[in-house]
Amino acid sequence: MPRAVTRFADATTMPWLGGGGITHELARHPADGDFAWRLSVAEVQQDGAFSRLDGVDRVIVLCSPGRMTLHTPDPVELQRFSPYAFDGGSEVSCTVPDGPTRDFNVMTRQGAYVADVATVIGADAPVDVPTGGQVFVFCMDGTVTCGTELGTFDLAELDESTTVDATHGAAAIVTFAPPAG
């Protein structure tokens, strides 16, 4: 069952530091100051450099059907609904040859949290909430059910084992936990 639901319409919207897009922040911890983890949707409006975030691990999931290529030492063409992890302190730029795209971003401060991001597309899956961790379900497209119905870009935090039904959509399941050790 969901502990909390954040509707995309209620997200905090802000321009990127370097321009070229906007971010819709859905959740972060802590609420003020530097984040230990953060979940957001980015609107990439043009080719350009990503903001460099030293000490931050990032996972990006392309949600829109348009193409996006990340330019790192080895360019990577992102696949829709497929998570891609990278070091936020790296020099990264992107091209969006089909025009603006939207993607889901998971950021964790190194040493504070680690994130696992899995996707469920057109199916249902059991989700076990780990002890000492937090689990969120993000609707990447269509509708997703997890004790409540989520529309595209809505987010729910889960508080116990549940089933995520993405029969009519696509979901990203994010688990935050303290680092091992």
Results as ranks from 00 to 15, higher is better:
Ala42Thr: 04
Leu70Arg: 04
Val137Glu: 03
Ala118Ile: 12
Ala123Trp: 02
Arg38Leu: 09
Ala118Pro: 00
Thr69Gly: 05
Trp37His: 14
Thr108Leu: 04
Leu53Cys: 02
Glu77Ala: 14
Asn105His: 08
Phe81Asp: 13
Ser40Leu: 03
Asp54Ser: 10
Ser93Trp: 12
Ala118Ser: 14
Ser82Ile: 15
Val114Cys: 13
Thr108Asp: 04
Phe136Leu: 11
Gly89Met: 12
Val96Lys: 06
Gly55Ile: 05
Asp141Leu: 11
Phe50Cys: 02
Glu43Val: 10
Cys139Ala: 15
Met107Trp: 07
Thr119Arg: 04
Gly55Pro: 03
Val59Trp: 02
Val129Thr: 11
Met140Ser: 11
Ser93Val: 09
Gln110Val: 15
Val56Leu: 06
Asp47Cys: 01
Ala42Lys: 05
Val129Ile: 14
Thr101Pro: 08
Thr131Ala: 15
Pro75Val: 09
Asp57Ala: 15
Arg80His: 10
Gly55Trp: 01
Met107Lys: 07
Met68Cys: 13
Phe138Tyr: 11
Trp37Asp: 09
Val61Glu: 00
Glu77Ser: 10
Gly66Ile: 02
Ser51Lys: 05
Asp87Leu: 10
Pro126Ala: 14
Gly66Gln: 06
Asp98Tyr: 11
Arg58Val: 03
Asp124Lys: 12
Asp103Met: 02
Met68Tyr: 01
Gly142Leu: 08
Phe104Arg: 03
Thr69Leu: 08
Thr131Val: 14
Gly111Met: 08
Arg52His: 00
Trp37Phe: 12
Val144Thr: 08
Ala112Thr: 14
Gln79Asp: 13
Ala42Met: 07
Phe86Gly: 00
Val117Asn: 01
Arg80Asp: 06
Val44Thr: 06
Val117Lys: 03
Val120His: 09
Leu70Cys: 06
Tyr84Ala: 13
Arg109His: 11
Leu53Tyr: 11
His71Val: 11
Asp87Tyr: 08
Glu43Gln: 06
Asp47Glu: 04
Pro126Ile: 12
Gln110Leu: 14
Gly66Met: 03
Asp98Ile: 07
Cys94Asn: 09
Cys63Lys: 00
Asp34Glu: 12
Arg58Asp: 00
Ala36Asp: 15
Thr101Met: 11
Phe81Gly: 07
Ile60Trp: 01
